[in-house]
């Protein structure tokens, strides 16, 4: 017992105090910065993209498909001799609109932040201080799942904002979907959604959930659920970083100041 208490004192406090302005390491690959000032031919970059996230004329990257692998950046540097594509360490990538995730040339994180999340009165008035979520892994690879678990650890401590993952859909205000949604999970996912009492929200978490990601062409997936129901929040990443998730949800449930 005494040793346990000693450990507690030794460990001290480790939570990130100001989560909305938490610093991120430079190496992190987040918001893409596109600048093709010299109009270099970037076909090579398009070819190496595993998910077809990059489009030319005009140049754009779809963060809903992007795995942030930086294959395009490397190809750009090595084959096109250009630095048209780069990734900043800006991590607030979430948006309430699918089309917002498509980043075009010369767009800055500040521009993005202004339009990315549209707050709605009916959401902020009800969920701003408490949001309980049921997570459904629908063929997720365990990458996003581990990061969502990390949101509740002592560093990120998401619970202090009233955001929690709960065991039963009956206790939840909405669901968080990870993975490309396999045929075998389609029924269970819809069942879970229907078990959540109204009003409820749906959050898509990670490239696979938003667009199918690297599994877009897989034969055993079934994404009909997404056509049937309204999606409230898209959180890009592969996997989603805990800071991306927490900040995305916070901006969604709180009034903009």
């Amino acid at each position: 017992m005494l040793d346990t208490l000693k450990s507690r004192i030794y460990q001290g406090k480790q939570f990130i105090k100001d989560i909305q302005n938490a610093p991120m390491r430079d190496q992190f690959r987040g918001f893409p910065i596109l600048k093709n000032a010299n109009n270099v031919d970037l076909q090579k970059c398009v070819d190496v993209c595993p998910t077809g996230a990059i489009k030319l004329n005009p140049l754009s990257i779809d963060m809903g498909k992007c795995t942030f692998c930086s294959a395009c950046k490397n190809a750009c540097k090595n084959f096109c001799n250009s630095d048209a594509i780069d990734f900043s360490n800006y991590y607030k990538l979430s948006s309430t609109k699918r089309e917002n995730l498509i980043i075009t040339e010369n767009m800055t994180p500040e521009d993005y932040e202004k339009v990315a999340i549209e707050t709605r009165k009916e959401i902020t008035s009800v969920f701003s201080k408490s949001l309980k979520l049921r997570q459904v892994s629908a063929a997720g690879c365990n990458g996003c799942e581990m990061e969502l678990n990390a949101c509740s650890n002592v560093n990120f401590d998401m619970g202090r904002f009233g955001i929690d993952f709960v065991a039963s859909p009956r206790h939840a205000d909405g669901i968080v979907i990870t993975g490309p949604i396999s045929k075998n999970m389609a029924y269970a996912l819809e069942d879970c959604y229907k078990s959540v009492p109204d009003p409820k929200i749906v959050i898509l978490c990670g490239a696979c959930a938003i667009s199918g990601g690297v599994y877009q062409e897989a034969s055993e997936i079934n994404r009909e659920f997404l056509d049937k129901y309204n999606i409230d929040l898209y959180i890009p990443g592969c996997p989603v970083h805990p800071l991306t998730f927490i900040n995305g949800v916070l901006s969604f449930i709180r009034d903009k100041k």
Partner: peptide
């Protein structure tokens, strides 16, 4: 979790 990975590897294999 079945997605058809082995089949997809033949169609479009990548590090990612």
């Amino acid at each position: 979790q079945h997605k058809g990975v082995e089949e997809l590897m033949l169609k479009k294999h990548s590090n990612q």
